[in-house]
Structures are given as C-alpha cells and as structure tokens.
Design a protein around this nucleic acid. Structure first.
Lengths: 190, 190
DNA sequence: TTGCAATACGGACCGACGGTCCGTATCTTC
DNA sequence: GAAGATACGGACCGTCGGTCCGTATTGCAA
C-alpha cells in the first residue's frame, strides 16, 4: 500500500479549511457553520472542502480529532491518572472528568459533532474508542457485559447537549458540575 | 380566556394528520418522514400541517404526547409502582423501565423527537416533566441539587439513540437490557 | 527548461427540505 | 341564505448538503 502521496496545495488547503472551520465554530454557534460558510471563510471553493473531508460529518470528525488529540494520547499512553496503567477506580473518574472539561471547553464543536447529520453519535469511531477505554478499565471490576453497559451509561452522562444544558442554562457552575459528576461516577463503580 | 373554538374541519384534519404521521413513522424510518410526506400521506395540503402544528417539532411533540399519554397519566396519578404515592426506591426504577420500554416500542418516533430540528431535547416541556418527576422522587432520598443531577443522568441512560444503539445493533436482547438498567438504577440511588 | 499527465480547484448546479403566502373554498353565525 | 371569519392547498422561497466538470496547478521526466 504505497499511500499515493498528496499534492502540496491539497494538504495546505486541508489545513486552511480546518483552521477556518475551527474559528467559525467559536465565533458563530454550530448552527452558523454551513459547508458554504466554511468554504468562504477559508477562501476556498466548496468542492475543495468536500474533496478533503468527504462530507459534513467528516469535517466535524477531523476537527474533533485534532482538538482532542492530546487528551486521547494522554489516555492511550500517558501517565496516571489518565494513562492505561492506572487502576480503574482512579482512571474512570479521571477520564470522565477530562471528557466533561473538553466538552465544556468546546461546546459548539461537540454539539455539532454529536448530532452529526442523521447518524447517531454511537456510529462514530471516536465514540467506540472512548467506550472501549472505559469498558476495558471497568472490566477489571466486573464482568464484561456489565462493564460495557456501564461504559455506555457513563458516557451518556457527559453528552455534549446535556453538559451544555447543565452549564449553559447557567444553572450549575462548572466546579459544582465536576464535583457532582465525580461523586456520581464513584457511586456507580462496582 | 374564551378559547376561541375551532372549526370542525380543522380538528378533523388535525387528527387525520396525526394518524398519517404515526403510520408513516412506523412504516418508514424517521428519515422518511418529511413534512411534505406527512401532508401527502394525510391527503392534505402542506399548509394545513403547518397551521395545525406550527413546525416539525410541534408535530413530533404532539405525536409523542398522544403516544405516551397513558404512561404519563399512570405516572402522574396512577397506582404503584408508577404512581406518585410509591416510595422512591420502587418508583424511580419503575419509571425508568417504563421509559425504556416506551422507547423500544417507538424507536423511530423518539429518535426523531430527540433530534428535533436543532433544539436539544433538553428544551422540550416533555423532558422537563419527566425530569421533574424523577427529581421530586429522588429528593426524598437526598438533597435537591444532587437529586436534580441524578435525574438528568438517569434520563440520559434511556435516551432514544442509546437505547436504539444497544437494542438495535442486535447486541443486547431486550430482557437483558431491562435487567441491566434495573441493576444500574438501583446502584445509583442514594 | 519544458512538456505532459495527473490531480486539485472553484463555483454553478441539483434535489430536498422546512417554512411562508395568498387566492379560493368551506364553515359558522345571524 | 348572506356575510364574515376561518381554514384549505400547493406554488413559492431561501438554504442546505452534496455533485460535476471545465479550468488551473502541480509534479515528474526528458
């Protein structure tokens, strides 16, 4: 598989589009980010955007990928409390807290990503990855089936729209939210 | 507020549309239910649909309202284990199980409802109602803030797309799913 | 350096969707 | 049965995600 090597302008444009989209997401809400708007903001034709990312979902995923890369690396190969060596009772709460924080920091992006056209978030490879991390960790504490279910339920507790609702309606301050989540997570561990 | 009395054809049409939409949802997926399709299936003009329900979200809510009316009544004023007299440790799991079952039985409808255009499900009056029920019940076991948070998290565990993912990917049989949810719910109660 | 594939570019174009508008038909009231 | 109020239908609109193709750029080889 020789990986047919990309043309220089293509990779340059890909980056430009990603930057423009990121900027757009923070400036306008997720609603204001149409593919056309992204293309225009990037100073590029619409076709270019679609060639680089296939479709809207692809763009969103690429964006989230880039944004969460450090966190994912920390979880995949970092030190405690996020890294793989950490005992589950410490790691699971740490991962959830990190996810909560990430979604708070990038609300618009994650909101857009979780609707993702018509496909549920549960199709995305990214979801599968996080679910796998939690499931495997939890499997040290209980049987596999229960671990899988628990992982789903825990991730549901940090879904972008719920987080946005809790934090955004101004009801719960961030610190309190994190505390609640932590105590909840703890209470769920087998 | 004299409630200006509806014309006969209007109420008749409203019912017709509701029926047609319900039928459409079960026949085609949620994707296949455009407002145009609903109008056509009801043998009615598009304008009529919009006049009766304001917008797509309105139609979906009306539909869900009608479908879940018996359950809501059972919770609001019925007997144990769903009714308001029931002690929380019995009522909360019962309500969640009932919600799980409802979503399993009407996947397409609830899926469509939870995306609901662009507004998160957390805006809908129906969500607020269910959240209130759980919150109030849980408030007998713990303080108000914690009860509110717990209610959100419990509802997140029975979100339509998660339920559809678990049951629909064929992974978890319904009986097992209900059992898992029950044991999870129990473990979360303070 | 130049010639020539191969590739990417841009933006006009498409079909579908949610939602609006208004001339016409139907209902209700007196 | 006449007149005023209300609802009807469907043509119409703006926008969106996505496609297509003639044109411009790039990279390799001579």
């Amino acid at each position: 598989m020789p990986e047919p090597r990309q043309r220089a302008d293509a990779v340059r444009n890909r980056e430009t589009v990603l930057d423009a989209a990121e900027e757009l997401f923070t400036r306008a809400g997720p609603a204001g980010v149409s593919m056309n708007a992204v293309a225009t903001a990037a100073g590029v034709g619409k076709g270019t955007v679609f060639r680089a990312f296939t479709d809207r979902t692809g763009l969103l995923q690429a964006l989230a990928e880039r944004r969460s890369a450090p966190l994912r690396r920390a979880v995949a190969e970092g030190a405690a409390p996020l890294g793989p060596g950490t005992p589950p009772r410490e790691r699971v709460p740490a991962v959830l807290d990190a996810l909560l924080t990430a979604k708070l920091d990038n609300q618009a992006l994650y909101l857009a990503l979780e609707e993702a056209g018509a496909a549920s978030p549960y199709q995305s490879p990214s979801y599968a990855w996080w679910h796998g991390v939690l499931r495997d960790s939890l499997a040290e504490l209980t049987d596999a089936d229960r671990a899988g279910f628990l992982a789903h339920v825990l991730l549901a507790a940090v879904r972008a729209d719920l987080v946005a609702h809790l934090a955004g309606a101004g009801r719960v301050p961030v610190a309190a939210l994190r505390r609640r989540l932590a105590e909840y997570t703890e209470s769920v561990l087998p």
